[in-house]
């Protein structure tokens, strides 16, 4: 099992890792010849699937394994993030899978070369960061699949995420402030109802004892999706499809948007999916 690559786009990988680490601590990293994929399945209700072509962030990418050149790793995101942050000013960084000499446990080894051109010293500094990982067998991750989603009822490009996030924070505070008893009883004090339609509108709604709040964004785009051509059929354009989400989880998901340029939310009868495009 061999894996070695140099990282050409450190900032994207750092941002991605930082976003993912706000959702969960451990990620399943699947590497194959073409793609790298992060999958997060924390206890909570949010799951993340992030797939990138390997050449968007890596260069000189070499991978080999007995399992059709696929490597599955369990990576601690915070450790990875800390290691990546130390390469911010690096001139060169390489990542390889190896074994720690002392106990033979598998590690991802990040080697960072920083060349300094100051008057005092010239030359380069070499820093090595070790990220302990667990190698997962192909069989153990076989069962983990991206959920199959039916054709979306509605898909819409969300307004700027930071904006929705700040509104969401207010909503969460509203639900905390006015019904403390409910929070302590069931922990579901913050249920937000999200809805959208194909007429470019997106709504967020909160209802509790003290207040009913609803924010409505208009003039959004409903993108053309390849897998769901505009055959929304008999569904009226302005009919809202809605989902109920946990306010806190929704806030976390919105943090992930740090990297995204376009965000597409899709509403299905039974589940909701937020898709991020672009880096």
């Amino acid at each position: 099992m061999r894996f070695k690559t140099s990282i050409k786009n450190i900032s994207v990988l750092t941002k991605l890792t930082s976003c993912l680490s706000s959702i969960g601590k451990l990620a399943w990293l699947k590497l194959d010849e073409d793609e790298i994929r992060f999958t997060l399945m924390p206890e909570a209700s949010v799951q993340v699937f992030a797939t990138l072509a390997q050449d968007t962030i890596f260069d000189d990418y070499r991978i080999a394994s007995a399992n059709e050149n696929v490597i599955n790793l369990e990576v601690p995101l915070l450790v990875l993030l800390r290691a990546l942050r130390s390469c911010a000013s690096a001139s060169d960084a390489t990542l390889r899978l190896t074994k720690r000499a002392s106990d033979n446990s598998p590690i991802l080894c990040l080697t960072i070369t920083t060349s300094s051109n100051s008057s005092i010293s010239s030359g380069s500094t070499l820093v090595t960061q070790e990220i302990p990982v667990r190698v997962l067998s192909g069989a153990s991750v076989d069962g983990i699949r991206e959920p199959m989603c039916p054709e979306p009822d509605v898909h819409v490009i969300l307004p700027p995420l930071a904006h929705i996030r700040s509104v969401t924070e207010r909503f969460n505070k509203l639900s905390l402030g006015s019904s403390p008893s409910r929070v302590s009883n069931g922990g579901d004090g913050s249920r937000l109802i999200l809805s959208a339609n194909m007429a470019g509108q997106f709504k967020m709604r909160l209802v509790n004892d003290a207040v009913k709040v609803e924010s409505l964004w208009k003039g959004l785009n409903n993108p053309n999706m390849e897998q769901a051509p505009q055959s929304t059929g008999d569904r009226p354009q302005d009919e809202f499809a809605k989902v109920t989400v946990d306010g806190k989880e929704w806030g976390k998901v919105l943090k992930v948007g740090g990297l995204a340029k376009k965000v597409i939310a899709c509403k299905f009868p039974v589940c909701a999916r937020v898709r991020y495009n672009g880096c």
């Binding site: 003290a210 009913k212 709040v213 924010s215 208009k218 003039g219």
Partner: peptide, 10 residues
Amino acid sequence: HEVSTSCQLT
């Protein structure tokens, strides 16, 4: 702008 928020305070 493109956002409108309505609040109904009990």
